[in-house]
């Protein structure tokens, strides 16, 4: 077991531990912060694995952008700051079983498959430098790169369209007092509701159909 192995293991423990905290903490903001720790540990792992360019991109985009975006989301949805007891859904038992099964299957398979797999890390130094990666992207992978840029643009426009309320189909002004509960179908058949007026033909017709069905 080399030094690199030990460092990787330590960083892995940090990443997994903080990941567990992300999915188990009772405070939303803490979850975002534990996510930063997990991403940082992964970035450090990339450095150990001699992929320094990917490591910096990880730090820049994940830690710098994505987490900030998530924090914005938390704020915009007026999530409660502080402890909240109902962050886990009723699906928890199933989730634990599924996740554990996934872990067991994956770990068993990987360990059995790569028990004797080693690679010389020292010989790989320089493989992850920005010049090598840049050359790779803009020579070999330039077409996917361009396609990805178009996709990014589409995602950008989509996000704008989705989040701005003055774009899109004509929609009625939100009701003055929006219901607290999600809107669902009315509890009973339409016929049970009182018609708004005796001469309201639509309502009468609907109620007739409903009785006939």
């Amino acid at each position: 077991m080399s030094t690199a192995d030990i460092v990787i293991l330590a960083l892995g423990v940090v990443a997994i531990g903080s990941g567990v905290m992300v999915v188990s903490t009772r405070q939303l903001v803490h979850a975002a912060l534990w996510l930063v720790v997990s991403f940082g540990a992964l970035a450090a792992s990339y450095v150990v694995l001699a992929a320094e360019f990917v490591a910096w991109v990880q730090v820049l985009i994940y830690v710098g952008a994505v987490v900030v975006l998530l924090l914005f989301g938390i704020m915009l949805t007026r999530a409660p700051i502080g402890r909240s007891e109902d962050l886990d859904s009723g699906n928890r038992i199933v989730a634990i079983i599924t996740a554990a099964a996934t872990a067991v299957v994956l770990v068993t398979t990987l360990v059995r498959g790569f028990r004797d797999a080693y690679f010389p890390l020292k010989a790989r130094v320089g493989n992850g430098s920005s010049s090598v990666i840049g050359a790779g992207i803009f020579r070999t992978w330039v077409l996917p790169f361009e396609a990805l840029s178009v996709l990014l643009l589409a995602a950008l426009i989509g996000a704008i369209v989705l989040s701005r309320s003055d774009i899109g189909p004509e929609q009625a002004e939100p009701e003055p007092t929006p219901p607290a509960r999600p809107r669902s179908r009315p509890p009973g058949p339409l016929a049970r509701r009182k018609p708004r007026g005796a001469d309201d033909e639509d309502t009468i017709v609907i109620s007739r159909i409903d009785e006939g069905a």
Binding site: N91, T108, T109
Partner: peptide, 22 residues
Amino acid sequence: GNPQTYISGVLAGVVLIVLAVV
């Protein structure tokens, strides 16, 4: 109507299939 249940089913199914293959 709970998407989490659906995804649980999908993932559990994938795991079972992988398990069977392995």
